[in-house]
Design a protein around this nucleic acid. Structure first.
Lengths: 188, 188
DNA sequence: GTCTATAAAAAGATAGAC
DNA sequence: GTCTATCTTTTTATAGAC
């Protein structure tokens, strides 16, 4: 089996348990591979597994979020599409965020640069859409940050409360909130 | 030394590294105690240390946040005071949240109920202030949720970006945002 | 590419002296 | 209340057969 086969499993493991919470024994069990086989696919051990998992989720992000955001539909529609994909990624508020989980413990230092770049690229992509829609660049940047903090915060809250409603409501309101003060196209 | 002496140290360790990321060796080093001495103070081991740390931070929360929120000043002033204490707690966006760190890994299952109760009590306390100020209860509840998700999300973002500005801006804007649509008292 | 076996280190936990 | 010493289990990692 090729290593890509195991990336979805690793993704689930690391987003839920973080770096320190995942042992090779757990990975072996979840993948069905022996420990030695894991080292065959990932000679660098757990750190390399996380690196590859980050790259895997980064490809998903680029393809499903960043790409469409730079597309050519109406800006507001692109933001709505983004929220749909965000909801998919986190399964309507039931699943944790890999990036957030990696900011805890030993992994913070190891993967900080990668996490930072991923957060920044999402903030920037949202800001670019809003700028294109006519918002002042500085305000657009702030709203990009608002969007990401809303996603992250609503996930923490929904999972902490065991209630997906706050996440779902926040995501549903997000496009209009980001678009506040901008002319909605083709209202009539 | 009494066990309370070590709670601030444990608080820092667990908020930064979570449950799985903190070993007894680290705790021994940070507290200056031997492992055996730690078991003298906390016979239940690491799990009991986290329990006590949660209780410790809960007392701080009650005294500095929940109590003042139920006080008798102007509602808007109470919300501003809450934001000041929140900023203290997280050192203007530099420090992570214990509750959020405990939602990762093995600790999620163990401490989920405690984390849930803590989040809910903050949401409810904010909602109560807004209801008192004249907001419809359902909307007040949503804004309580918005407040907590903003705090959590801005922390993740600021620490992820290595830039305290998003946290500081979000916290600075929070009281007025929560108060939106309500009459600000004594404007003239 | 996967396995069994094994080694080396770290982590959690306890006994018993002071 | 703190320590040294020790034990057990878990974890990471590797060697080598198939």
């Amino acid at each position: 089996m090729a290593r890509e086969t195991y990336l979805p499993v690793l993704f689930q493991l690391f987003r839920h348990h973080g770096y320190d919470g995942v042992s090779l024994a757990k990975i072996a069990e979840a993948t069905g591979l022996g420990k030695a086989s894991l080292y065959h696919h990932f000679p660098g051990g757990k750190a390399e597994m996380v690196q590859e998992t980050l790259a895997y989720s980064g490809r998903w992000m680029t393809e499903n979020i960043l790409g469409p955001l730079q597309g050519d539909g109406e800006p507001l529609e692109r933001l709505r599409g983004m929220c749909d994909r965000i909801s998919d990624l986190y399964e309507a508020g039931e699943q944790p965020c890999l990036l957030a989980s990696l900011t805890v413990g030993a992994s913070r230092d190891i993967f900080h640069a990668a996490v930072q770049e991923r957060l920044r690229s999402l903030v920037d992509a949202i800001a670019a859409v809003l700028t294109e829609a006519g918002l002042a660049p500085e305000l657009a940047q702030q709203r990009g940050e608002d969007a990401v903090m809303t996603i992250q915060g609503s996930l923490i809250l929904s999972r902490g409360l065991d209630d997906p409603a706050p996440f779902q409501r926040a995501i549903a309101q997000l496009p209009e909130r980001l678009y506040q003060g901008l002319p909605s196209p083709i209202v009539s």
